[in-house]
């Protein structure tokens, strides 16, 4: 069974360690916060200027002045802080944020990522993604293995305009966990019930399979 979006988020949550400052992108990455273990201390940063993000507010307690980078109303936890955009990106560019989790339209086997523009069709902009991928030491991409047309999103080379070059280290999809290595996508784990052949079929880029590949432990 391929994972759904929540399953992907659940698997990624296992990568979050005690003492981490984490930036979550829009979409699947936002869901990761729901699955982080309760017995570790983690602070979520949102690039519009908040560290120590909490859950969504209760109805009637929304505050237009307290939002996340997805423009959603949020709350803050004890110990939280607000700051301006330049300071926010000092945290990111200065590598004070430990882990960045973001979505992608395409990832290439050399670690390139594309997620901000489809020429002639969709131009929403990169937001903070280019700063995040150019700076973060630890980047995990959360995405579906294939697009809606069934085409692989793990490619030899990205076809869309790039967001960053050679920056992705790890990818968690609905089918697999993969590491970006010098020789291609190294398969680390399979989603429950998904075969190596299924993953091979859905991967256009070079897939490296060494020995028996374990199922994800969710």
């Amino acid at each position: 069974m391929a994972l759904d979006k929540n399953g992907i988020a659940k698997r990624i949550a296992k990568e979050v360690q005690d003492g981490y400052y984490v930036n979550l992108g829009i979409g699947i990455p936002t869901l990761v916060a729901n699955y982080v273990r309760n017995d570790i201390e983690v602070e979520f940063q949102s690039e519009n200027g908040v560290l120590g993000m909490g859950p969504f507010p209760f109805e009637g307690e929304e505050d237009a002045d307290i939002i996340n980078a997805g423009k959603q109303t949020i709350t803050t936890l004890p110990g939280a802080s607000f700051f301006d955009s330049a300071m926010s990106f000092s945290m990111i560019r200065g590598q004070h944020v430990h882990l960045t989790i973001l979505g992608a339209m395409e990832v290439a086997e050399n670690g390139d990522i594309a997620n901000w523009k489809i020429p002639g069709r969709m131009v929403k902009g990169m937001g903070g993604a280019m700063d995040l991928v150019a700076s973060a030491e630890n980047i995990i991409v959360a995405m579906m293995h294939t697009n809606k047309a069934g085409e692989s999103k793990l490619l030899k080379r990205c076809s869309l305009p790039l967001t960053g070059v050679g920056c992705v280290k790890k990818i968690v999809t609905n089918l697999a966990v993969l590491e970006v290595t010098e020789s291609g996508f190294k398969l680390l784990e399979r989603a429950p019930g998904v075969s190596v052949e299924d993953i091979q079929k859905a991967t256009e880029g070079t897939l490296i399979v060494e020995g028996a590949i374990p199922e994800m432990n969710l």
Binding site: E47, D84, S85, A86, S88, F89, I92, R93, W116, K117, V123, G125, M126, G127, G128, A129, M130, D131, A134, S135
Partner: peptide, 25 residues
């Protein structure tokens, strides 16, 4: 369209008297 951190820093550079800044973004 420019990266968000670059937008912030190009403002800050103008505020702080730097003609330009280097960024990896």
């Amino acid at each position: 369209l420019i990266p968000q951190g670059t937008l912030a820093e190009r403002c800050r550079a103008a505020q702080a008297g730097f003609p330009a800044v280097y960024t990896p973004a």
